[in-house]
Design a protein around this nucleic acid. Structure first.
Length: 223
DNA sequence: CATGGGATTGACT
DNA sequence: GTCAATCCCATGC
Protein backbone atom coordinates (compact mmCIF):
# COMPACT_ATOMS: atom_id res chain seq x y z
CA UNK A 1 0.00 0.00 0.00
CA UNK A 2 1.41 3.35 -1.02
CA UNK A 3 1.20 6.24 1.37
CA UNK A 4 -2.04 8.23 0.80
CA UNK A 5 -2.35 11.80 -0.47
CA UNK A 6 -3.14 12.95 3.08
CA UNK A 7 0.35 11.93 4.12
CA UNK A 8 1.86 14.43 1.68
CA UNK A 9 -0.74 17.17 2.19
CA UNK A 10 0.97 18.28 5.41
CA UNK A 11 3.73 20.75 6.31
CA UNK A 12 6.78 19.71 4.29
CA UNK A 13 9.01 19.48 7.38
CA UNK A 14 6.73 16.87 8.93
CA UNK A 15 6.63 14.85 5.74
CA UNK A 16 10.43 15.01 5.36
CA UNK A 17 10.87 13.66 8.87
CA UNK A 18 8.19 10.99 8.53
CA UNK A 19 9.53 9.69 5.22
CA UNK A 20 12.63 8.43 7.04
CA UNK A 21 12.11 4.67 7.35
CA UNK A 22 9.60 4.46 4.50
CA UNK A 23 10.27 2.28 1.46
CA UNK A 24 10.64 3.42 -2.16
CA UNK A 25 10.00 0.87 -4.90
CA UNK A 26 10.54 1.22 -8.63
CA UNK A 27 11.04 -1.21 -11.51
CA UNK A 28 11.73 -4.23 -9.36
CA UNK A 29 14.05 -2.75 -6.77
CA UNK A 30 13.44 -1.06 -3.41
CA UNK A 31 15.18 0.70 -0.55
CA UNK A 32 14.51 2.27 2.83
CA UNK A 33 14.66 6.07 2.93
CA UNK A 34 17.42 7.13 5.34
CA UNK A 35 17.96 10.77 4.31
CA UNK A 36 15.64 13.57 3.13
CA UNK A 37 15.59 17.33 2.72
CA UNK A 38 12.60 19.70 2.80
CA UNK A 39 12.12 22.56 0.33
CA UNK A 40 9.38 25.21 0.51
CA UNK A 41 8.39 28.12 -1.71
CA UNK A 42 8.97 30.55 1.17
CA UNK A 43 12.76 30.09 1.09
CA UNK A 44 15.14 30.82 -1.81
CA UNK A 45 16.83 27.42 -2.00
CA UNK A 46 13.55 25.99 -3.25
CA UNK A 47 12.96 25.94 -7.01
CA UNK A 48 9.39 27.08 -6.28
CA UNK A 49 10.70 30.33 -4.78
CA UNK A 50 10.43 31.99 -8.22
CA UNK A 51 6.78 31.05 -8.58
CA UNK A 52 5.02 28.88 -11.14
CA UNK A 53 7.13 28.35 -14.28
CA UNK A 54 7.52 25.54 -16.77
CA UNK A 55 10.12 24.04 -14.50
CA UNK A 56 8.24 24.36 -11.20
CA UNK A 57 4.76 23.46 -12.39
CA UNK A 58 4.90 20.04 -10.76
CA UNK A 59 6.01 21.50 -7.43
CA UNK A 60 2.75 23.43 -7.18
CA UNK A 61 0.65 20.42 -8.11
CA UNK A 62 -1.20 17.80 -6.10
CA UNK A 63 0.47 16.41 -2.98
CA UNK A 64 1.86 12.97 -3.72
CA UNK A 65 3.26 13.77 -7.16
CA UNK A 66 6.85 12.93 -8.07
CA UNK A 67 8.97 15.97 -8.94
CA UNK A 68 11.95 14.76 -10.98
CA UNK A 69 14.39 17.27 -12.42
CA UNK A 70 17.87 17.33 -13.93
CA UNK A 71 20.67 18.47 -11.69
CA UNK A 72 23.98 19.79 -13.01
CA UNK A 73 22.95 18.70 -16.47
CA UNK A 74 23.63 15.11 -15.54
CA UNK A 75 21.63 13.61 -12.69
CA UNK A 76 17.92 13.08 -12.09
CA UNK A 77 16.80 13.99 -8.57
CA UNK A 78 13.63 12.58 -7.01
CA UNK A 79 11.27 14.60 -4.83
CA UNK A 80 7.83 14.05 -3.29
CA UNK A 81 5.49 17.02 -3.76
CA UNK A 82 3.92 18.11 -0.45
CA UNK A 83 1.38 20.50 1.10
CA UNK A 84 -1.93 21.37 -0.55
CA UNK A 85 -2.07 21.96 -4.31
CA UNK A 86 -1.06 25.54 -5.04
CA UNK A 87 1.74 25.52 -2.46
CA UNK A 88 5.20 24.85 -3.89
CA UNK A 89 6.93 22.39 -1.59
CA UNK A 90 8.66 19.02 -1.86
CA UNK A 91 10.88 16.54 -0.06
CA UNK A 92 14.12 15.55 -1.78
CA UNK A 93 14.97 11.86 -1.32
CA UNK A 94 18.74 11.90 -0.72
CA UNK A 95 19.73 8.36 0.27
CA UNK A 96 18.38 4.82 0.55
CA UNK A 97 19.38 1.67 2.32
CA UNK A 98 19.02 -0.97 -0.43
CA UNK A 99 16.33 -3.51 0.43
CA UNK A 100 15.68 -5.67 -2.63
CA UNK A 101 16.99 -6.00 -6.16
CA UNK A 102 20.52 -5.11 -5.09
CA UNK A 103 22.12 -6.92 -8.01
CA UNK A 104 19.86 -5.01 -10.40
CA UNK A 105 20.96 -1.79 -8.70
CA UNK A 106 24.59 -2.70 -9.34
CA UNK A 107 23.86 -3.22 -13.01
CA UNK A 108 22.08 0.11 -13.29
CA UNK A 109 24.96 1.87 -11.55
CA UNK A 110 27.11 0.82 -14.49
CA UNK A 111 30.64 -0.54 -14.66
CA UNK A 112 31.50 0.93 -11.36
CA UNK A 113 28.49 -0.48 -9.58
CA UNK A 114 30.07 -3.92 -9.54
CA UNK A 115 32.80 -2.75 -7.22
CA UNK A 116 30.64 -0.77 -4.83
CA UNK A 117 29.67 -1.75 -1.33
CA UNK A 118 25.93 -1.88 -0.70
CA UNK A 119 26.26 1.31 1.32
CA UNK A 120 27.49 3.22 -1.73
CA UNK A 121 24.78 2.15 -4.17
CA UNK A 122 22.18 4.74 -3.11
CA UNK A 123 24.14 7.11 -0.85
CA UNK A 124 23.24 10.29 -2.73
CA UNK A 125 20.28 11.78 -4.60
CA UNK A 126 21.77 11.16 -8.05
CA UNK A 127 22.99 7.68 -7.17
CA UNK A 128 19.65 6.45 -5.93
CA UNK A 129 17.71 7.57 -9.00
CA UNK A 130 20.23 5.74 -11.16
CA UNK A 131 19.98 2.59 -9.01
CA UNK A 132 16.17 2.77 -9.05
CA UNK A 133 16.03 3.52 -12.75
CA UNK A 134 14.01 6.72 -12.20
CA UNK A 135 13.97 8.93 -15.29
CA UNK A 136 13.18 12.57 -16.03
CA UNK A 137 10.10 11.51 -17.97
CA UNK A 138 8.53 10.41 -14.67
CA UNK A 139 8.27 14.00 -13.50
CA UNK A 140 4.63 14.65 -12.59
CA UNK A 141 3.68 11.00 -12.12
CA UNK A 142 1.79 9.94 -9.00
CA UNK A 143 3.50 8.35 -6.02
CA UNK A 144 0.11 6.93 -5.04
CA UNK A 145 -0.56 4.75 -8.08
CA UNK A 146 2.20 5.53 -10.56
CA UNK A 147 5.47 3.83 -11.51
CA UNK A 148 7.24 5.02 -8.35
CA UNK A 149 5.72 3.75 -5.09
CA UNK A 150 6.41 4.83 -1.51
CA UNK A 151 5.01 2.80 1.34
CA UNK A 152 5.27 2.93 5.12
CA UNK A 153 8.19 1.12 6.68
CA UNK A 154 7.94 -1.83 9.05
CA UNK A 155 8.71 0.22 12.12
CA UNK A 156 6.14 2.03 14.18
CA UNK A 157 6.28 5.58 15.46
CA UNK A 158 9.40 7.59 14.95
CA UNK A 159 8.47 10.76 16.72
CA UNK A 160 11.66 11.59 18.55
CA UNK A 161 13.88 13.92 16.60
CA UNK A 162 17.39 14.44 17.87
CA UNK A 163 19.09 17.73 17.20
CA UNK A 164 16.10 20.00 16.85
CA UNK A 165 16.45 23.11 18.92
CA UNK A 166 14.80 26.39 19.73
CA UNK A 167 15.66 27.75 16.32
CA UNK A 168 18.95 29.54 16.97
CA UNK A 169 20.76 27.25 14.58
CA UNK A 170 22.99 25.61 17.15
CA UNK A 171 23.55 21.91 16.93
CA UNK A 172 22.45 20.14 20.06
CA UNK A 173 25.84 19.62 21.63
CA UNK A 174 26.48 16.07 20.58
CA UNK A 175 26.49 14.45 24.02
CA UNK A 176 30.22 14.01 24.04
CA UNK A 177 30.29 12.87 20.46
CA UNK A 178 30.64 9.21 21.24
CA UNK A 179 27.05 8.10 21.27
CA UNK A 180 25.99 9.36 17.87
CA UNK A 181 26.11 5.85 16.48
CA UNK A 182 23.76 4.37 19.06
CA UNK A 183 20.51 3.42 17.44
CA UNK A 184 17.36 3.73 19.47
CA UNK A 185 15.53 1.11 17.50
CA UNK A 186 15.15 2.49 13.99
CA UNK A 187 13.17 5.45 15.18
CA UNK A 188 15.78 8.13 15.93
CA UNK A 189 16.04 10.91 13.37
CA UNK A 190 18.66 13.66 13.34
CA UNK A 191 18.04 17.10 11.83
CA UNK A 192 20.84 19.07 10.19
CA UNK A 193 21.58 21.62 7.47
CA UNK A 194 20.90 20.90 3.80
CA UNK A 195 23.66 19.97 1.38
CA UNK A 196 24.82 21.51 -1.87
CA UNK A 197 22.86 24.75 -1.74
CA UNK A 198 24.01 28.37 -1.58
CA UNK A 199 20.86 30.07 -0.27
CA UNK A 200 19.08 29.60 3.06
CA UNK A 201 22.02 27.46 4.13
CA UNK A 202 21.20 27.99 7.80
CA UNK A 203 17.91 26.13 7.78
CA UNK A 204 18.20 22.74 9.40
CA UNK A 205 15.80 21.02 7.05
CA UNK A 206 17.79 17.84 6.41
CA UNK A 207 16.75 14.64 8.14
CA UNK A 208 18.75 11.44 8.56
CA UNK A 209 18.21 8.10 10.28
CA UNK A 210 20.54 8.49 13.26
CA UNK A 211 23.83 6.66 12.88
CA UNK A 212 22.75 5.00 9.64
CA UNK A 213 25.76 4.15 7.44
CA UNK A 214 23.82 4.52 4.17
CA UNK A 215 23.42 8.33 4.31
CA UNK A 216 25.20 10.51 1.75
CA UNK A 217 27.19 12.37 4.39
CA UNK A 218 27.32 11.82 8.15
CA UNK A 219 25.69 14.10 10.65
CA UNK A 220 27.07 15.80 12.63
CA UNK A 221 29.77 16.73 10.08
CA UNK A 222 33.14 15.11 10.72
CA UNK A 223 35.01 18.42 10.13
C1' DC B 1 18.46 35.48 -28.06
C1' DA B 2 22.73 34.88 -24.88
C1' DT B 3 24.24 33.79 -20.67
C1' DG B 4 25.01 31.74 -16.16
C1' DG B 5 24.17 28.79 -12.55
C1' DG B 6 23.13 24.78 -10.32
C1' DA B 7 19.18 20.32 -4.41
C1' DT B 8 26.01 16.03 -7.97
C1' DT B 9 29.22 12.63 -9.05
C1' DG B 10 33.46 10.29 -10.26
C1' DA B 11 38.07 10.78 -11.77
C1' DC B 12 42.26 12.61 -10.87
C1' DT B 13 46.55 15.21 -8.35
C1' DG C 1 41.96 18.09 -1.78
C1' DT C 2 40.45 19.94 -7.05
C1' DC C 3 37.73 19.84 -11.24
C1' DA C 4 35.14 18.83 -15.53
C1' DA C 5 30.94 16.91 -17.42
C1' DT C 6 26.47 18.52 -19.33
C1' DC C 7 21.65 20.51 -20.04
C1' DC C 8 17.50 22.76 -18.61
C1' DC C 9 15.66 26.92 -17.80
C1' DA C 10 15.34 31.53 -15.39
C1' DT C 11 16.90 35.84 -16.14
C1' DG C 12 18.33 39.95 -18.52
C1' DC C 13 19.33 42.61 -22.55
Amino acid sequence: MSLPADFYARPVLEVARDLIGCVVEHRGVSGVIVETEAYHESEPACHAFVGVTARTRTLFGEPGLAYVYRSYGIHALLNAVCEPAGVGAAVLIRALEPLSGIEEMRLRRGREGRHLRDRDLCSGPGKLTQALGVELSENGTSLLDGPIAIRAGEEGDRDDVIGEDGGDGQVAAGDGGGTQGQLVGQSAVVAGTRIGITKAVELRWRFCAAGNPYVSRPWPPVS
